[in-house]
Design a protein around this nucleic acid. Structure first.
Length: 874
DNA sequence: CGCTTCACG
DNA sequence: ACGTACGTGAAGCGA
């Protein structure tokens, strides 16, 4: 038996969604393509996942519909379709024709009504129906046989509304969606609803009375005075709103389900449209080999012996590895390129060549590479010393735009217009299929990389100079790469025994807690599964769910803390989670990362964060516990690598607020830092208008939270969450803060305005971050971009400063001839290991160097400590 | 492989 | 009305 599978798409809604979800892409010919692209991506996924037998894209027809006879203002006040979107509709229609997907529109009806009519018919026939839209109104069509897919951000992300899911999400049946709209209205369609009734009230009323009609029949039972008044005065409007929101399921269609049969696309036509629109990734999906024009052959010299003539004082060099952890990966070969030649040598040939080793170690020979840190570290692992890296493609492209992250050289090259390097995944495969190909293939791949590095250097350096970014790149990031390399290669000695002792202690406690939790719950379950835990807490025990996630009840710590007094199990779970985290991530996780030399070698990602910070991976040594004592003990396992040595830690005090004081030029804040005041206490004095002696610990705590909020780009909601107060109270706090610090207030306003004007913000050292969403009409995106505009200059400048300090520090250690080694950077602190007899010197030079990394309008302050383990440096 | 949770600054 | 604090990485679950 064959059942039909009918997919019905809401064309206009999906095009709008795609348009606003994706950045305004233009192809080479200047045509905007984002809506077509997003629509197509979604379509491809649906075709692949659902394999429909019948399909239709329904469009809205013209301006007026039968709903306008009911209410002239229906969809009134809507902004005109942006021209950048309008111009994309013809392409969408053409594309759908190429896919052989039927399209339909009907005068006086909206796409919803076409879909509603067909889904109802299909449903009655026993067919499986999928409705796809960006508009949640369509969830009213959900039924046993009909599922409604609503796209979420990014288009390919989809939320599936079955009747159960509607019920779970809203607590009502799909048919009641129209009652909900009747009561709350819909601003986007200009449906009025009942004033003063929003989603919450509407749902409450419906849970009690079931429908708009029943609400009015029982109107006398409603006690809330204002609500009753609003309902009574707007009865007609409520009924009308419900009618407007109701999708017509008996539209006079001139097509039937049989007209929708779908047999697959006309690939030739699809390909030609993709080519016209320059959809490269989509083209590759269809025909990987045809996607690109055949690659031009590259002439490679495969050297078995290196002569002086092969090497010059200016060359691109690339170290090819299949694994991304260059600290442990094997080197598959080395490629070199200059203006004329492209060379490839195996590791063995390189290692045996005195000529090559001399060339490599001589800094006068300028080397251009991608990821100099990886190059230096991997070569050092093979006993090859490399000096003189003058260009780093990875860092340069990151500085041009830190928001674009690249998985490999191919994608960087592509960004700058070069398509002649294949992605690593294509050469090596991925997942289980990943393997080393024959040497010829490696040689070609590596050589193409060296070639593109050579060719792009000039292009990218020019771009850096144009944007005033060259200094940041060349004087800060490039020298830092070498220092980070040294830190990674040095590693941190980690005492496995200490970890194991803490681990067995934790394990014992976890077993006890586990038993106590099962006892309290009355059954065994997986405590680590939020899903199972949610069932136990909120269904079996019957606690009140405070927050929901996409997938169910939230069981996050802040939620559980609010329930702690309700049931003994909560406290046990919180402790279990805390200790479980320590055990799995830190004890077990870190133990696995200890190398044969007894050390952990993290890698610092220098071209990743959007703000300019570093990140640490494999393992992450920037998030070792410190806030709670149980976790802090983990730090006892990190020790000096030589007998008689110490760990020495130094951190910037309040660096972000000092940066804020400087860039905002707020006089009060500058004054406070110059006077050496406790900034949170000072903030409390100003915000609450009291003397220092009258500042209570609660006031200081609140002031501290506001200071954090300010740094993050404050919102009343965020502050209310962190302080556990109402939004209104939070808003009052913020207002009195900004009145106390007018310079800060002005800065926040100016930076957002400036970002809107220029499209980006910068840090003290000119690091740039582009914020395309800052002019978005989407409230969320814009709000996020605005907060980012406020935060990035602060977080990013602090990152600039500590990077500069690291460079100065490395130089100082060298100049002073000290043995001290820099080991770690944790955003505002530096960790060193040092022989005992250098500690006195460090006490003096570390704060001196760090504090003078940059001159601000306020002093920088550094605190330090030393001890026999990281735990003791407090 | 996405989601949730939680560790850090 | 909208639904958020900024920046990260790792582990475990469950489709």
């Amino acid at each position: 038996m064959t059942t039909k599978k009918i997919v019905l798409l809401d064309g206009n809604s999906l095009a709008y969604r795609a348009f606003f979800a994706l950045p305004l892409l233009t192809n080479d010919s200047g045509i905007h393509t984002n809506a077509v692209y997003g629509f197509t991506m979604m379509l491809q996924n649906i075709l692949a996942d659902e394999k429909p037998t019948h399909m239709l894209v329904a469009w809205d027809a013209g301006k007026t519909t039968f709903r306008h006879q009911t209410y002239g203002e229906y969809k009134g006040g809507r902004q005109k379709t942006p021209p950048e979107l309008s111009e994309q509709f013809p392409y969408l229609r053409k594309l759908l024709e190429a896919f052989n997907i039927p399209q339909y529109e009907l005068d006086q009806y909206e796409a919803d009504d076409i879909i509603g009519t067909l889904s109802t018919t299909g449903d009655a026939d026993g067919s499986e129906v999928i409705v796809i839209s960006g508009d949640k109104d369509l969830t009213q069509l959900a039924s046993e046989k009909t599922t409604v897919y609503i796209t979420r951000k990014g288009m390919t992300d989809i939320e599936k509304y079955t009747p159960d899911h509607v019920k779970e999400k809203y607590g009502i049946e799909p048919q009641q969606i129209i009652d909900m709209k009747g009561l709350m209205g819909d601003t986007s369609d200009n449906i009025p609803g009942v004033p003063g009734v929003g989603e919450k009230t509407a749902l409450k009323l419906l849970k009690e009375y079931g429908s708009v009609e029943n609400v009015y029949q029982s109107i006398d039972n409603i006690t809330a005075k204002k609500l009753k008044e609003n309902l009574t005065n707007n009865e007609e409007q409520a009924y009308m709103s419900k009618t407007l929101a109701t999708i017509e399921v008996k539209a006079p269609l001139t097509i039937s389900i049989d007209d929708l049969s779908y047999a697959g696309p006309d690939m030739d036509k699809v390909t030609s449209i993709y080519q016209e629109l320059k959809f490269k990734t989509l083209l590759e999906k269809i025909a990987p080999q045809e996607a690109e024009k055949p690659q031009e052959a590259i002439d490679i010299q495969f050297l078995t012996e290196i002569t002086e003539a092969d090497l010059t004082d200016e060359m691109a060099i690339h170290i090819e590895m299949i694994e991304d952890n260059y600290l442990t990966a094997d080197i598959l070969g080395i490629s070199l390129a200059d203006e004329k030649r492209t060379l490839f040598v195996t590791l063995a040939v390189a290692q045996q060549s005195a000529i090559f080793k001399e060339w490599l170690g001589n800094p006068a020979n300028k080397k251009y590479t991608s990821d100099s840190k990886a190059a230096i570290a991997s070569l050092a692992g093979q006993g090859l010393i490399a000096e003189g890296f003058e260009f780093d493609l990875l860092l340069a492209s990151y500085i041009v735009n830190p928001s674009s992250t690249y998985p490999d050289i191919a994608s960087i090259a592509r960004e700058f217009g070069r398509a002649d390097v294949q992605p690593d995944e294509v050469i090596y495969g991925k997942g289980a299929k990943k393997s080393v190909p024959d040497e010829e293939k490696i040689a070609e791949h590596a050589s193409r990389k060296a070639r593109v590095i050579w060719d792009l250097r000039d292009v990218i350096e020019t771009k850096l100079k144009e944007n005033d970014l060259y200094d940041l790149y060349h004087e800060l990031e490039l020298p830092l790469a070498k220092i980070l390399c040294q830190m990674e290669v040095t590693g941190v000695k980690t005492d496995l025994k200490t970890l194991q002792e803490i681990g067995s202690d934790l394990s014992a406690k976890l077993i006890e807690l586990e038993a106590a939790i099962y006892e309290a719950a009355g059954e065994k379950f997986n405590i680590n599964s939020p899903k199972q835990l949610g069932v136990i807490l909120f269904e079996k025990i019957g606690l009140t769910p405070i927050k929901k996630t996409k997938t169910g009840y939230s069981t996050a710590a802040d939620v559980l803390e609010k329930l702690e007094s309700e049931h003994e199990i909560i406290g046990l779970i919180l402790t279990y989670r805390q200790l479980g985290k320590l055990n799995s991530t830190y004890i077990e996780g870190l133990s696995k990362e200890i190398h044969e030399d007894g050390k952990i070698h993290t890698r610092f990602q220098q071209a990743l964060t959007t703000t300019g910070r570093l990140s640490s991976i494999n393992p992450n040594l920037q998030n070792i516990p410190v806030r709670l004592e149980e976790g802090r003990k983990i730090r006892a396992a990190f020790v000096p690598s030589e007998p008689g040595w110490y760990l020495f830690a130094a951190d910037y005090s309040q660096i972000e607020l000092r940066v804020l004081a400087h860039i905002s030029k707020d006089e009060k804040m500058i004054e406070a830092f110059r006077a050496g005041a406790d900034i949170h206490t000072k903030t409390a004095m100003d915000v609450f208008g009291v003397d220092q002696d009258a500042v209570t610990s609660d006031m200081r705590r609140a002031a501290k939270a506001v200071n954090f909020g300010i740094v993050y780009g404050i919102s009343d909601y965020g502050l209310s969450q962190s302080l556990g107060i109402t939004r209104k109270e939070a808003a009052t706090f913020i207002e009195s803060y900004l009145n106390s610090f007018p310079g800060v207030k002005a800065y926040m306003e100016e930076i957002v305005a400036d970002a809107k004007l220029k499209g980006y913000v910068t840090t003290l050292m000119n690091r740039r971050r582009y914020l395309p969403d800052i002019t978005s009409s989407n409230f969320n995106l814009r709000g996020f971009a605005e907060r980012t505009a406020m935060n990035t200059p602060i977080q990013g400048s602090a990152a600039d400063i500590i990077k500069k300090a690291m460079i100065d520090m490395a130089k100082r250690l060298e100049d002073e001839g000290l043995q001290t080694r820099m080991l770690l950077q944790v955003h505002d602190e530096l960790i060193f290991e040092a022989p005992e007899d250098e500690i006195e010197k460090l006490k003096q030079i570390v704060p001196e160097v760090m504090e003078s990394a940059i001159a601000l309008d306020v002093p920088l302050k550094v605190d330090w400590a030393f001890g026999l383990s990281w735990y003791e440096t407090k």
